[in-house]
């Protein structure tokens, strides 16, 4: 096949990462330190996610990569081809056909099923980081469940904007214990984190942390009694497939300020179009 060991990393490293993953699954939401390796790509391009994917992939797996929901962006394409080359695994863009999905910034619209693994690329795993820069202190806060500070961030949001303006990387509490950063997914995706049938793994390469949510874990987005959590999205149907239940990207289409909204999940959008759903920018009758 290639001169690489299966999935690039050596077996010792994969074993080390698997141990971290197992520990993470055993303590949902807890950040497990691991010895992150140099990968043949820069930090910030998903080195954490790639190492987690490398540790869980088997030759029988079918691999999918999305970046902001899309299968065809540079980051997604290069990671997909990386594993094609180093592991020889089958790849797909279909959410339901994939067994391992590596993602940056989205959870697919189509509900995942048992047996699937969703691997997140995480830039900053520590949700308390922006208010308390000392790692020694944040670890203590996690171990003692001192999470008042997390609400300070949301408090500041409301006092500045009148509502909780945090729209991505919205903090959650896992099984009533650990506060976790869900990676920079839009808060629209937060409700999908909880009670998911698939395994969710989070890898932060530069920060050397892995954490995890086993299937059907209770995940609650933090909020205030008088400012409850809302999973917001742009208030439009998809211009291409007419979907009203999906997270949308705003696309500028001309120099005159024209714009359209389309599903950020390309697989979802294409599947709907293939099934005959058409949005208003696509000559469809589903237009709202």
């Amino acid at each position: 096949m290639t001169e690489y060991n299966f999935a690039y990393l050596d077996e010792q490293t994969k074993r080390m990462i698997r141990r971290a993953i197992l520990k993470g699954l055993a303590i949902p939401g807890y950040q497990v330190p691991f010895a992150s390796r140099e990968m043949p790509m820069p930090y910030g391009w998903g080195t954490g996610g790639v190492q987690v994917s490398a540790a869980v992939l088997t030759p029988e797996d079918t691999f999918k990569v999305i970046d902001q929901g899309a299968d065809d962006t540079t980051n997604a394409v290069s990671i997909r081809s990386f594993f094609q080359r180093t592991a020889g695994v089958a790849t797909t863009t279909s959410t339901s056909d994939a067994t391992v999905i590596q993602t940056r910034h989205r959870i697919p619209e189509e509900p995942l099923h048992e047996g699937q693994i969703l691997v997140y690329q995480v830039p900053i795993p520590e949700p308390l980081r922006f208010l308390e820069p000392r790692e020694s202190e944040t670890r203590k806060m996690h171990s003692l469940e001192e999470y008042g500070l997390m609400h300070v961030k949301l408090y500041e949001d409301i006092s500045r904007h009148g509502h909780i303006a945090t729209s991505y990387a919205y903090p959650v509490k896992v099984e009533g214990r650990y506060v976790m950063d869900p990676s920079p997914i839009p808060k629209f995706d937060n409700p999908k984190l909880g009670d998911m049938a698939a395994i969710q793994l989070f890898g932060a390469g530069r920060e050397q942390r892995i954490y995890a949510l086993p299937p059907y874990t209770k995940v609650v987005s933090l909020d205030f009694e008088d400012h409850p959590f809302e999973a917001s999205k742009a208030d439009h149907p998809c211009g291409m497939c007419g979907a009203t239940d999906s997270y949308l990207d705003e696309v500028i289409i001309d120099d005159a300020g024209g714009r359209m909204f389309v599903c950020s999940d390309t697989d979802y959008c294409e599947a709907r179009q293939a099934a005959g759903h058409m949005g208003k920018d696509n000559g469809g009758k589903d237009a709202a």
Binding site: L149, Y155, F224, D226
Partner: peptide, 26 residues
Amino acid sequence: RMGVSASGNVGERLMAVGERHYGDIR
């Protein structure tokens, strides 16, 4: 906390002991 508003600084201790009503805290 120099990066947090005055009321956020005062509110932190309330939130730390479990207060979760924004209006009351403010």
